[in-house]
Simulated assay, not measured.
Amino acid sequence: MAFSDELNVVNKAFSGLGIDEKSLISILGKWDTNQLKSFRLRTPHFFGEDDRSFEKLVQNQINLLKFDFLRFKTAMVLWTMHPWERDARLINDALLDGPKSNNVIIEIACTRSSDELLGARRAYHSLFERSIEEDVASHVTTDERKLFVALVSAYRYEGPKVNEEVAKSEAKILYSAVKNADKKNPLLDDDVVTILSTRSKSHIKSLFKYYVDLSGSSIDVDLDINVSLKDTIQCLCTPPTYFCKVMETAMAKEVDENTREGLTRVIVTRADIDMKLIKEEYRNKYTITLSEKIEDVANGNYKDFLLTLIAREENK
């Protein structure tokens, strides 16, 4: 392998999303002092010039690499957990992370079935000797609190029956709340919270068809600045769209570790649920297959494990 190719391998490994351990050991194990220095000088985004005349690895890269070696292990541990425990721990971690992980709370509350969410709540009791509801109420201090408590407390009807007249009426309520968002945050509107946390997903999907008739545009467009409300509606109505967004953001360069973990979380939790739909949506949205994207950005055992998981449905 030419030195330029070796530089690409090491550069990719240092960039995150998995490390090809065998290649990295082989290359770094044989590089001499000059080759190592050449790598440092050619990657100023990893190494900064110290005032004492040496190339210093930036602290952020040290942190990233520590996480990178753990990423494969994290994926394996999450995969082997009971889904109830996995969701309970993911919610607890999200609450400890603060507002930057609000989407994880929404994701679990809105994309799980009623029984799955109830199971996560039971597991949370057992693991942390508190309820999800009380921890959400305690940790979330922003306008999202009322909605989040209601969402994690939900036990929705899951049948197909929809009262179209009620859906039309509630579309007007939501449209009015969104239209007047500059005066009052829709997240603080009791009617909006009740609709989103108690109605069946079939009902809410029907409601948003009527919303488009009133607004002339989808609520996704109208809610561009209200991220939590937009995520809630996507998770309830079009989960594959939401999950694709999470993964694409996680695979972008220069994202924090918290965001990067979204790729592992989505693939591990959806591999046996709706991965086929997610892969179809991903290809339609980004004109590349999810497998190709993972091949491009990930490395080593982590990459192989993710590719194995997203292919499970094909092998059944």
Rank of each mutant, 00 (worst) to 15 (best):
P44T: 12
D135V: 00
S206I: 04
E280C: 06
D256Y: 10
A94C: 11
R145K: 15
I294E: 00
T194H: 13
K253A: 08
Q61W: 13
E295D: 11
E129L: 15
K100W: 06
V136R: 00
D296Y: 08
D213W: 09
L236I: 15
R52Q: 15
G29Q: 13
A150H: 09
K168D: 05
V162G: 03
E313W: 09
L117N: 01
T80F: 11
L78N: 07
F208S: 01
N103G: 07
Y286P: 03
D222I: 04
R283Y: 07
E280V: 11
N301M: 07
T269D: 05
M247V: 11
D87M: 07
P99K: 02
K179H: 09
A123F: 01
N34W: 09
V268S: 01
D191A: 13
D182W: 06
C244A: 06
L17T: 01
R122Q: 09
S206Q: 10
G300S: 03
K37Q: 15
L118I: 08
F243K: 02
A13W: 00
C110F: 07
G48H: 12
A75E: 00
K12W: 06
L307H: 03
K316L: 12
F3P: 06
K293W: 05
S23Y: 04
K293N: 10
R270N: 06
F54L: 15
L28C: 15
L207E: 01
V152C: 12
V255I: 09
A177D: 04
N299R: 05
I106H: 00
V149P: 00
S206H: 05
D50A: 15
D256E: 12
L57K: 08
V266A: 03
E314S: 12
T142Q: 09
Q59A: 14
E134H: 13
D222N: 08
A94Y: 00
P83K: 04
I278H: 01
Q59C: 11
V152R: 01
L64I: 13
T194Y: 10
S126D: 14
M251S: 02
A298L: 06
A150I: 10
I225V: 11
F14Q: 03
T289D: 07
E170D: 12
D97A: 15
T308K: 13
P44A: 10
A94N: 02
Y124N: 02
Y210W: 12
V266C: 05
A250F: 02
E281K: 11
K276F: 06
G98F: 09
L57Q: 08
F54K: 15
H45S: 14
E21I: 13
V246N: 03
D220Y: 14
H139C: 15
M1R: 08
I27T: 04
T74D: 07
E257V: 02
A2C: 13
L307I: 09
L214Y: 05
F14H: 03
L90R: 01
D20C: 05
N60W: 06
D143V: 11
N60A: 08
R270D: 04
Y302D: 02
R52N: 15
E261S: 10
P186I: 04
S113L: 09
I25Q: 14
I62F: 11
D256K: 10
A88L: 02
D97H: 07
S291C: 06
L118T: 08
